[in-house]
Measured scan of single mutants.
Amino acid sequence: MAAGGDHGSPDSYRSPLASRYASPEMCFVFSDRYKFRTWRQLWLWLAEAEQTLGLPITDEQIQEMKSNLENIDFKMAAEEEKRLRHDVMAHVHTFGHCCPKAAGIIHLGATSCYVGDNTDLIILRNALDLLLPKLARVISRLADFAKERASLPTLGFTHFQPAQLTTVGKRCCLWIQDLCMDLQNLKRVRDDLRFRGVKGTTGTQASFLQLFEGDDHKVEQLDKMVTEKAGFKRAFIITGQTYTRKVDIEVLSVLASLGASVHKICTDIRLLANLKEMEEPFEKQQIGSSAMPYKRNPMRSERCCSLARHLMTLVMDPLQTASVQWFERTLDDSANRRICLAEAFLTADTILNTLQNISEGLVVYPKVIERRIRQELPFMATENIIMAMVKAGGSRQDCHEKIRVLSQQAASVVKQEGGDNDLIERIQVDAYFSPIHSQLDHLLDPSSFTGRASQQVQRFLEEEVYPLLKPYESVMKVKAELCL
């Protein structure tokens, strides 16, 4: 049975990233139509530049190519590739079939990587351009969430054990800070992308030097003109047959890092959902379990974690691919890159769409948070109580021993009897502590235990987050809708 299948058929496997999760716009960027249309555009740009620099290419040939950029006979191309065992030459023939007058000058002087690699770089750039505003929107939604809850005390956790208090907004800023680093890295790697350009079979530009009869300047002009037509500021000066596969490492490393950030955020949300302090959106008709109707599973956060793990592992592909590119190139890269580049971007696209949807509907339960604080705060307040007693004339050592005994009794009630923490009640009825009984409410005010959390939130948002989001103001209103 021949390899390949009808990918629109229910009898043929289709990647869930495309069929179930990723956005239509990201799927289109990695589609065959987008790819092969870009090949034709690159052939047109090459012909236009070659004509401008004096090669015998007519206006009629150029116009014929322009008129057929979208006229792609995919069936013919597939048949040609089956016959020739070469995808680029299959599309040269297919393009030439609908451009008979231009057929002889299509791909003039070029090698397969002229269309293959340059198209990949265009796709990487455009895919990054799709991700950047999506990530900015996630940051914006979380920034709104953090600002609104900047002063809401909550129990902090280290080692997932109760620690000092923080605020809900401050905790959210930990998430935002990681995503801001990801946004900066995505922008950097996007701006650092260079075009492969017009380089020939081993990167020496020998074929173009021959076409222009040894004119170095025209060869350099050709490279520059096509690079500018493709919208790049610069091209690699040095290439082998391909652009260095280190570029793929750079791009997928940034995406993998984004995956790590999203995994951490969504894990926190899942843990908070278990504590009943916070939940992701839950639709009115949504079913959490087929057997347990009360369940409210954090399905979206779980999906993000599941896909983020996949995204983090994909960076190993370009690392290994770059390491086995012998001399000017081997074909070890080809099949692998067809999979890992598309999957990385479709996965990143999915987790950003999902995280935006989550961040637009996060639900906080202040009463649950308050109750958990009441359970733990008495123990945390013991040092403040000791200091207040010393100020009232008591002995630190005597007070410490009193607190120690009462704390152990209260802990026994919590752990052995399943009761509430009654340390404060014990202190309130103990005559030894009568000098500070009137101060206990103040000493137990949760806001006095959150330090500068709310001020940190305000400063972080104003100095770091809002300036970073400013270039994306025009796209901030787009909502994230999930079908599944």
Rank of each mutant, 00 (worst) to 15 (best):
A2V: 06
A2T: 13
G4K: 14
G5V: 11
D6G: 10
G8W: 12
P10S: 14
Y13F: 08
S19I: 08
S19L: 12
P24N: 15
P24A: 11
M26Q: 10
M26N: 05
F28L: 04
S31L: 04
Y34A: 12
R40S: 02
W43D: 06
L44A: 15
W45P: 06
G54T: 00
L55G: 01
I57E: 01
I57Q: 00
E60F: 11
I62C: 05
E64L: 07
N68H: 06
N68V: 10
L69P: 03
N71D: 09
D73M: 02
D73F: 11
F74N: 14
K75P: 07
M76F: 09
M76R: 09
E79T: 09
E80Y: 13
K82L: 13
R85F: 02
H86E: 07
M89T: 03
M89W: 01
H91S: 09
H91A: 09
G96C: 06
G96E: 11
H97P: 06
C98Q: 11
C98W: 06
I105E: 12
I106D: 05
I106F: 10
H107M: 10
L108Y: 09
T111K: 01
Y114C: 05
Y114D: 05
D117I: 00
N118Q: 00
N118K: 00
N118E: 04
D120F: 15
I122K: 04
I122M: 09
A127S: 11
L130R: 12
P133I: 15
A136R: 07
V138G: 10
V138H: 10
I139F: 00
A143E: 01
F145K: 03
K147I: 12
E148Q: 12
S151K: 15
S151T: 11
P153Y: 08
T154E: 07
G156T: 03
A163G: 09
T167I: 03
K170S: 04
C173G: 14
C173A: 13
W175I: 00
Q177S: 13
Q177F: 12
D182A: 05
L186G: 14
L186E: 02
G203N: 00
Q205D: 07
A206T: 07
A206R: 01
F208C: 11
Q210G: 12
G214D: 15
D216A: 12
H217E: 14
L222S: 01
T227W: 02
T227G: 09
K233H: 01
I237W: 08
Q241I: 00
T244D: 03
I249S: 03
E250I: 15
L252F: 11
A256I: 00
A260K: 04
S261F: 00
V262Q: 04
H263K: 06
I265P: 00
R270A: 00
L271S: 06
L272A: 01
A273I: 11
E277M: 05
E280G: 03
P281R: 07
F282Y: 15
G288A: 06
A291C: 02
P293A: 12
S306A: 04
R309V: 12
R309T: 09
R309A: 09
L311P: 00
L314K: 06
M316H: 11
D317T: 08
L319A: 00
L319W: 04
Q320S: 13
A322D: 04
S323P: 00
V324L: 14
R329F: 01
R329A: 04
N336S: 09
R337S: 02
A342V: 01
A344H: 07
F345V: 12
L346V: 10
T347P: 06
A348V: 11
D349C: 10
D349G: 07
D349Q: 07
L352N: 07
T354P: 08
N357W: 08
S359K: 10
V363P: 05
P366H: 10
P378S: 08
E383G: 02
I385H: 01
M389S: 09
K391R: 08
R396P: 07
H400R: 01
H400E: 05
H400G: 04
E401W: 13
E401G: 12
K402L: 10
A410L: 07
Q416R: 10
G418V: 02
D420K: 02
D422R: 10
L423Y: 08
R426D: 15
R426G: 08
V429C: 10
V429A: 00
D430N: 07
F433E: 01
H437F: 14
L440E: 03
L440S: 00
L440C: 13
L444G: 10
L444Y: 05
S447C: 15
F449D: 13
F449E: 08
G451Y: 02
G451H: 00
R452G: 11
Q455F: 15
E463M: 13
Y466E: 12
P471Q: 15
E473Y: 15
K477M: 15
K477A: 15
K479A: 10
L484T: 15
